[in-house]
């Protein structure tokens, strides 16, 4: 597969390490009343879609960017590649 890195252009997927569902960005608030339950959901409960999937890839053999790649799990078509940092900020994760 070829991943179109937002900063570096098209790169072979062999340069990357795969992590999984991009929902891992949405780490819960440790001070919530039900924090343990929220963390349990966050860590263990994932969707496994046949189709579009937003997932985290790490450019380990490259510039060390974490990326959010939107990939069709049936066809391997990649429709969007974003810097995970930008996605995290857009989700309101600041500090």
């Amino acid at each position: 597969m070829i991943i179109n890195h937002p900063l570096l252009g098209p790169r072979d997927s062999q340069e990357f390490t795969y992590l999984g569902d991009a929902s891992l960005i949405e780490r819960p608030d440790w001070q919530a009343a039900d924090a343990v339950d929220q963390f349990y959901d966050y860590l263990y409960l994932r969707d496994n879609p046949a189709g579009l999937h937003r997932e985290l890839w790490y450019h380990e053999q490259g510039d060390r960017s974490w990326l959010v790649v939107t990939r069709n799990t049936l066809t391997h078509d990649i429709t969007s590649v974003e810097l995970a940092r930008d996605v995290a900020k857009a989700k309101g994760r600041s500090t």
Binding site: R27, W66, L83, A88, K89, R93, S94, T95
Partner: peptide
């Protein structure tokens, strides 16, 4: 060494991007 570094980059970029 490799896995920890990867994890730290994940924390830095994906969890606390403004640190």
């Amino acid at each position: 060494a490799v896995g920890v570094y990867r994890h730290l980059e994940f924390c830095r970029q994906c969890l606390w991007p403004d640190l």
